[in-house]
Computed example of a mutant assay.
Amino acid sequence: MLEGNRVSRISVRGFAVASATAVTTVGAVVGVASGSASSTSDNMETAASDATTLLAEVPVGQQAPVQSLSLAQQADAQAAAAESTAKKAVEESARLQAAETAKEKKAAADAQAKKEKEAKEAKEREAKERATRDKQRDASSFTAKSSYSIAEVKEMARQMIPADQFQCFSNIVEKESGWRYTAQNPSSGAYGLVQAYPGTKMASAGADWRTNPATQIKWGLNYMNGKYDSPCGAWTFWQANRWY
């Protein structure tokens, strides 16, 4: 070394490595010339080992370029991983949104289908009720007779009462008069098939209310519809109270 000049450790080590390599090379040439192949191989391995040992002793500050390269690779790997994760998150979000949209569309379609079904059923029900009403006969359409059997009176009722209400109407008449159109309550004076009280109320349906069961049926049906919405509504009340 020269006085006053400081040579870095890496420079010294580098020089040593170069010197060792040079010596090894010269030795190898000499060895080849003298036919000593084994000596040459040993010298080369020794020189390589020394060089590796010397490089391992490179100060930390001199390793910065190598470390920077490694950090850059790690950063690239992390960035790629983050990008992949973000891409998967976007795809999953899109999938969930598509599923939710499909669910909402199905719910809307089901609701529309239900609405259309209910409208169709209501229309069919109305048509059926209209057809039933058209088939029903008015009290005036029956020929007046001097007397009627219970079977005849029931048949009149079947033709005048809506089919889905007939049984309820029949239940009440059976309880009130046993289908006898001239039945009269001796204590109250209630009269006829439906035991109108007083019997004169049935005059609103026809002047022949005493002798015509059709007139009594007409009045009874109007009374039940007006007070209980239907004969079945009247029958429900009758069962709870034994009167209507």
Rank of each mutant, 00 (worst) to 15 (best):
P186I: 10
S70M: 15
S146C: 05
K128Q: 11
E174V: 07
P213I: 02
S36L: 12
R6C: 06
M44T: 04
Q97Y: 10
A48H: 01
A75W: 14
N171W: 01
A47L: 02
A94Y: 06
T24L: 02
K103P: 06
A79I: 08
S204F: 06
D110W: 05
A214G: 07
M160S: 01
S170K: 09
D110P: 02
E116H: 04
A77P: 04
D50Y: 10
A86G: 11
W238R: 12
A79V: 05
G27F: 03
E176G: 02
P186G: 14
V23L: 12
W243F: 13
K128A: 13
T215N: 05
A72S: 15
A240T: 09
Q184C: 14
S141L: 04
S49K: 11
A47K: 00
M44I: 13
K114N: 14
S140I: 13
Q136K: 06
A22N: 11
E83P: 08
L54V: 04
Q159D: 11
A64C: 12
A122D: 10
K154N: 02
A119P: 02
S41Q: 10
A163S: 11
I161S: 00
F15D: 07
G233F: 06
D42H: 01
A190N: 07
K154L: 04
D50T: 09
A139D: 01
A37R: 10
D164N: 04
A102Q: 10
R130F: 07
Q74S: 15
T143V: 07
M1L: 08
Q167S: 09
T21I: 04
S170C: 06
A163G: 03
R133V: 12
A16H: 07
E57K: 09
R6S: 08
G31N: 03
E92K: 07
A89M: 07
E83I: 15
I217P: 00
S11N: 06
N222Q: 09
K128P: 05
T143L: 02
D110G: 04
K123H: 06
R130E: 12
P186L: 10
G61E: 05
A183H: 02
A163C: 01
R137I: 13
A240D: 14
A183E: 09
Q73N: 15
Q216N: 14
A151T: 05
K145Q: 09
P65F: 08
K103I: 05
T24F: 01
Y228V: 11
A18V: 03
K117S: 15
E124Q: 01
A98R: 08
I161T: 01
K201Q: 15
A157M: 08
A81D: 14
Q63Y: 12
Y197I: 11
F142N: 08
V29C: 11
E152F: 00
A80E: 14
I172L: 03
S8C: 12
V23W: 05
A122T: 11
A64T: 15
A28T: 15
Q167A: 11
T24P: 00
G220D: 05
L55S: 03
T25S: 14
K145C: 05
A113C: 10
T53M: 07
A94M: 08
A107S: 13
W219S: 03
S8Y: 04
R9M: 13
A37F: 07
I10D: 00
A22E: 12
M1N: 07
S11W: 02
S140P: 05
R210T: 09
K154I: 11
S141G: 09
S84A: 15
